Amino acid sequence: MNKIDTVIFDLGGVLIDWNPEYVFLDAFNGDRGKMEWFFKNICTSDWNENQDAGYPLTKATEDLIKKFPEHEEYIKLFYGDWEKMLGGAIEGTVKILETLIKSKNYKVIALTNWSNETFPIAQKRFEFLQWFEGIVVSGNEKTRKPFKEIYDITLNRFNITPENSVFIDDNLRNIEAANALGINGIHFKTSKDLLQQLKKYNIQL
């Protein structure tokens, strides 16, 4: 096994709890079925990911209202109340991040699918986002995971050798894309599990 010298973190779902349910479960008066239908058919994950790749939030909202005018109120809520979708830090993972940073044995980078318009809100709220050597934000790069281009940007910008790096993401699709480029991947489930997975790569914590 190659010696790991770089650890790359996803942010949402790994270090930061982000969930649109925090807004929409209330909006739909606790009716989970209606909320899930809305996410599956109107404000879909594909639609949101398009904004993660740099599409303007206002334009995306207008586009969707034209398509589904009867859902205008709820569509406006998605980015209008976006900040309320941010939960707290995932503390167990933040502790792992802090240990890695303090050890000074590893280059520690973040690679996130995040709109460039909303990312500054997270930066103000979460101090640990200042700890990274660098953060690649999809909205700034106008591409996103799982496309090869954003991994190439990350590897080149920070002079990372794929085989000597580990990438942590809660989305298996993104891990598989990283693996295809020779990057070692850990599919994030819990902070406790992550700790065990990192040890398998002989990462000192």
Rank of each mutant, 00 (worst) to 15 (best):
R125W: 14
E127Q: 05
E141W: 14
F128C: 05
N140G: 04
P162N: 04
L155V: 02
L129I: 06
N116Y: 14
L129H: 10
V137F: 08
N116P: 02
G139I: 01
E133Q: 03
T161K: 09
Q123Y: 14
E141G: 00
P120Q: 08
Y151W: 15
R157M: 12
T154N: 12
L155A: 04
S138D: 09
I160H: 02
E141A: 00
F128P: 04
I121F: 07
T118E: 14
E149R: 15
N156W: 14
T161Y: 03
E149T: 12
I150Q: 13
N116D: 15
K145W: 15
N159K: 02
A122L: 11
Q123K: 14
F126V: 06
R144N: 07
F158C: 00
R125C: 11
F119P: 04
R144I: 05
F158Y: 15
V137A: 01
Y151T: 00
K124W: 09
F119H: 09
R125S: 11
V136I: 13
P120G: 07
N156M: 10
L155G: 00
G139K: 01
N156A: 00
F128R: 00
Y151H: 08
N156C: 03
Y151C: 00
D152P: 06
T161R: 04
K148T: 13
L129A: 00
G139N: 04
R125K: 05
K142H: 15
I121G: 05
T161C: 03
F119I: 01
F119K: 04
F128W: 12
I121N: 10
W131M: 10
K142N: 11
F132D: 10
R125F: 13
F126M: 10
N140D: 12
L129K: 06
I160G: 00
D152Q: 13
L155P: 02
